[in-house]
Design a binder for these strands. Structure first.
Length: 417
RNA sequence: GGGGGAGUGUCCCGAGUGGCAAAGGGGGCGGACUGUAAAUCCGCUGGCUAAGCCUUCGUAGGUUCGAGUCCUACCUCCCCCA
């Protein structure tokens, strides 16, 4: 598979991005001899992209880096329908207002990876609401619907699984793949887009678009999917206690983002370095040679590089520095997440339970009590044994803060104001 | 339209004879061991002003000292017949 001649496919292939490609030779030729335009569609179901979106987005990055033109397609229209792929449950129907807010919020992420025209690049940001919202039903059925065979649609995994497991699949969702296919054909017409990329679960939807493009525009279109990323121990990636690993800094701080990558399993480090950083492969190979505890060095590189890509080099270095002080020197790092508390509350004595809840380390007083019993809570690195303990100004460190810890990894500073 | 079945700790799957804050998993969190890893072992996994109180088994009523469990109506899903 790595005998691709075009830079684009060569890079994707050697870094481990490729799961399936339709007509690999033809696409390779096209990418070698011309500038291709490719797109990836994004849902607007949440106010931020998360780790799961990072892999496809890296493909757009490499696409542009190897001289081609990426389109980030926001699903302003399709999000109103909901993609049933890989899900048993129907999506909640989101209001147009929320979808729009999400869309605006998500847009910011792309500017980190892609150069748009405003930055002197050629990347395009499109929104399928532009053409989907104004579709006329009868016209659409006659022009597009005629090319879709229900027999065939029923055979697609996204549909088949629902039917087999006897889960509801509404007609609304059933139409999702038609709309996505239409997106591809429309982007081909508007921008000369000839390639759609996505996660492996998108294969069926993409192939539908290829067929429709041929029928509507007589165009030759291609599909390229990325593998579904699971961790070495088989868990789906991107879930933590706090929920999804968000890409927006206001939902997940650069420090926490760094920590996420730092805690990568051994078996994943090399793969992740290739996928989620832009380090040269020679460098990755060098890091791959590390054994045993030395792998931690590779993990730090992974964390810093991945964070730098997302939040900038400065934030990444700061996160690395904070982690180094906290974990390796046992020192108090001032850049740990900080929660401000009125000084008056410390004067009168703040209950530990309340303090940990306020800091966001535990969800309720009850959980705080349980954690104390289990020996999981610490004040300034001293394990709490009595839930009646109170925090006073006496607990302030020379730096004027109090360090609260949950377990070994989660720390929050309390700062009086 | 007729007949049959199902909805359980709001993360998921799932047991449940009228005494149930409700078995068991998975996941998650904490502890031990480590390398901020994995594996393994142990503990925890509704809320509160906590030997008590409050809220939970699709929804709303009812029977009962007491209901996830019985009755009625309704909602949603599945299967068979039309």
């Amino acid at each position: 598979m790595s005998d691709f001649k075009s830079d684009f496919l060569h890079v994707l292939s050697t870094r481990g991005f490729i799961h399936q490609v339709s007509e690999p030779e033809a696409l390779d030729d096209l990418a070698r001899t011309s500038r291709i335009t490719a797109y990836i569609g994004y849902d607007c179901t949440a106010p931020s992209l998360h780790i799961g979106h990072l892999l496809p987005t890296m493909m757009l990055y490499w696409l542009q880096q190897t001289g081609h033109r990426p389109i980030a397609l926001m699903g302003g229209g399709t999000t109103r329908v909901g993609d049933p792929s890989g899900k048993d449950e129907s999506r909640k129907v989101l209001s147009s207002e929320i979808i729009n807010e999400n869309l605006v919020s998500i847009r910011k992420t792309f500017s980190k990876f892609l150069k748009f025209e405003s930055d002197g690049g050629n990347a395009v940001m499109a929104n399928n609401a532009d053409w989907l919202n104004t579709l006329n039903y009868i016209d659409f059925l006659r022009d597009v619907g005629r090319y879709f065979s229900v027999n065939r649609m029923l055979a697609f995994d996204s549909v088949k699984l629902r039917l087999e497991r006897q889960h509801e699949l509404s007609f609304l969702e059933f139409n999702y793949m038609i709309l996505q296919a239409y997106d591809f054909a429309e982007l081909n017409k508007r921008y000369g887009c000839t390639l759609q990329m996505g996660g492996s679960d998108q294969w069926g939807n993409i192939v539908n678009g290829i067929d429709l493009g041929r029928r509507l525009n007589n165009a030759r279109l291609f599909a390229l999917t990325a593998p579904l990323i699971t961790t070495a121990s088989g868990a789906k990636m991107g879930k933590t206690a706090a929920g999804a690993v968000w890409l927006n800094a206001d939902l997940l701080s650069p420090y926490d983002y760094w920590q996420f990558w730092r805690n990568t399993e051994d078996g994943d480090v090399v793969r992740f370095l290739k996928l989620f950083t832009i380090l040269p492969l020679e460098e990755v190979t060098r890091l791959a040679a590390l054994q045993g505890g030395e792998i931690n060095e590779a993990k730090k590189v992974l964390a810093t590089e991945a964070t730098a890509l997302m939040h900038g080099r400065a934030s990444a270095e700061q996160a690395a520095d904070t982690a180094q002080k906290t974990f390796e020197q046992g020192a108090l790092a001032e850049n740990l997440p900080t929660v401000e508390v009125p000084r008056a509350e410390l004067d009168t004595g703040l209950g530990v339970l309340t303090a940990f809840v306020t800091a966001g380390l535990v969800a309720s007083n009850g959980e705080a009590r349980r954690q104390i019993k289990a020996g999981g809570l610490k004040i300034n690195d001293a394990t709490i044994t009595d839930e009646k303990t109170t925090l006073t100004t006496g607990a302030l460190t020379p730096q004027g803060v109090i360090k609260l810890s949950l377990g070994k990894k989660k720390h929050v500073l309390i700062k009086p104001v």
